[in-house]
Design a protein around this nucleic acid. Sequence first.
DNA 1: AAAAAGAGTGACCACATCGTCATTATTGGG
DNA 2: CCCAATAATGACGATGTGGTCACTCTTTTT
Lengths: 245, 245
Amino acid sequence: MTSRGETRGKGADTRPEAARRPGPPGGRRETHRRERTKELEDAALRLFVERGLDLVTIDDITQATGVAKGTFYRYFEDKAALVDALLAPVRGELLEGLEACGRALEVARDVEAMFEAYRAVAAVIASALLQYPGVVRLYLQESRGPAVGARTKVAELSKLVARHAVDITQKAHTHGLLRPVRAAVSGLAVVGAVERLLLAVLSEEDIGNPLDLPDALTTLVLDGLRVPPGARPARRKLDGGPKRP
Amino acid sequence: MTSRGETRGKGADTRPEAARRPGPPGGRRETHRRERTKELEDAALRLFVERGLDLVTIDDITQATGVAKGTFYRYFEDKAALVDALLAPVRGELLEGLEACGRALEVARDVEAMFEAYRAVAAVIASALLQYPGVVRLYLQESRGPAVGARTKVAELSKLVARHAVDITQKAHTHGLLRPVRAAVSGLAVVGAVERLLLAVLSEEDIGNPLDLPDALTTLVLDGLRVPPGARPARRKLDGGPKRP
DNA sequence: AAAAAGAGTGACCACATCGTCATTATTGGG
DNA sequence: CCCAATAATGACGATGTGGTCACTCTTTTT
């Protein structure tokens, strides 16, 4: 079967035909391959975000890239593999960040340490947002659909995120830093809130300065919406609120 | 064009051929039509939730229903119209509930009245959840995808919900009942949290008793996660938390 | 009971889509 | 410069899909 080009003993290369690196060194072929890969990924990502994963065909992608259809299959096994490749870097950073947060919370004894752990995750997310906005958008769009076909990997990532979030919340609970609300509930609520706000940012809904979001979210998540009881009737001007005549 | 069967002067019926009620009274035809419609809608909804809107074909729906393909087009213009029909009742109740909440908040002067307004919306959502769980699921699955093809109406509803939520939050703000966080931010955050939890309930993720959710959400949204400063170190057993040995 | 109107059917058309593969073009080593 | 290895191409077969329509079956009206 895969009997050609087996110069280097790579063992069983699961990738059926694609992605198998060109034998040569770091020369022209390698470069060109990387370029092509990126071109395909970029075009595909744009289309995915525009139309949704399922309504983009391989033909659409290759036409948008300006290559022949056969070329696609030289680079990716199928659409699902392409999606996986798109997701890979974000998934890596994100999960790493969440795990680090979990570890930090295991030893967090006070509110300050808890803050710090959450801030670190926020930084990871912000970084992903800046480096891979399209991929984050794709995730937000598709993560809640059924885990079928090309969407499988996105749904898997979503499940992982949920699990980690609940886990983290659980850990924050064990040191009595949070109200006694079920971790599964508060964890998912926070994930939902964050994801909805990310979507707003990426969809350019009017939401003010994105840089204010972390602070606002922290306030909301930690201390809620209600004006602190006992505080003055709050006549302060609301940011962004309509001015009374 | 539509030159046959134009015996009755119906004027311009936008519905091209389908949904035009059978002339007869409330007799056999009418009944049968309702049954067929429901059969088609039920089968379609099941498939939509299983595979996602875009991966379900008209053939799938008619085969699942056990009717010929042509029959589908007698009842619905196309897939988008079917989705619209599925959404209709939930959309109606939901928007009505949100508007009522808005009106209530316009005259709400204290926290109690605010509570009451939110409770009313929660009741509407709970009712929709019980009456139309599949439709709610469909909404949660598809609402974030691009507004293309059959998904257009779902995306529209999502936009409406967001607008109403921000609106409501804005109103709650004007009486100084909430912290000075941008309404667009807190409103969307709450929507995100609620939707994520609904999804958890409908996906049967382990989240405890769904009936506890409204209370938990109220606590989270209004007063946040952090244990109230000054409270005792919170040694109370966490509901659902792992027991320490 | 007969005729008219409505409802249901499934073959059918045109076109889209996947994934393959023989063929042609390009690259790198000798 | 030539040749083997690799990459790119796009026509192709098989199957899927939306939507139509002449026809048959059922219900309602006369």
